[in-house]
Amino acid sequence: MISHRSAAGMLLLASALLGASALSAPAAERPGRAQASLAKGKEIYARECAACHGVKGDGEGPGAHIVNPKPRNFILGVFKLRTTPSGQPPTDDDLLRTITQGIAHSAMPSFRELPEADRRALVGVVRQFADIKTAPRPIAIPAAPEVSAALLEKGKTVYTALKCQTCHGDTGTGDGASSLTLKDDAKGRIWAPDLTTGVFKSGDDAKALYARIATGLDGTPMPSYASQAKPDEIWAVVHYVRSLAKR
């Protein structure tokens, strides 16, 4: 998706050329509420999102070639930012959160200025592109523990035990031995992020970081640790990683 506020002129032109008509829902005599929302979502999508994500939702919009990482191909149904187990589609709230917040380290901007009803309508469009027909269940995320020196020390120990350093490096700067050879689903070059910047794809929210570690980022090399780490261990790593940030 690309912001109508922040987009380059070329993308805006491309979006305008695509026009709302390309994605207009077929007229229905008496559409139900869901159908009306979907139709509205398609209009918004054509205006705000198709320049990057493409009219068909395949990530091949006219502006896709100038952004890195490439826009998501919704048709494949693989999403990075989820609260659902690896391999499962995201929840509606996951999609809404991404549309609302955008994704750091990428061209995906925040669409916070759109009314929530419009953002929810876009969720419906993405679901339709990705053929998500179920209501995916999120993982349980227990309450966060109090941050303490002992917790951070535990987090450092668990970070090493889980071998996070293989990609993220001993100090979290993204210089692990495997970081040099990582590829995404499309076999494009990808690097383990530098955790010390304090900038994370889904923001600095601790629960979001918990979900990233527990469920992984599908479409990237970041795997799910849900079966290999206990909730208290994941929480310890979350707070250790946050403590690495050079604020």
Binding site: N73, L76, G77, V78, P85, S86, G87, A161, L162, K163, D185, A186, K187, G216, D218, G219, P221, M222, P223, S224, Y225, S227, Q228
Partner: peptide, 12 residues
Amino acid sequence: ARRTLFNIAQPQ
């Protein structure tokens, strides 16, 4: 194309 089916860490 290829799409992720699952991606699971096995550190031990």
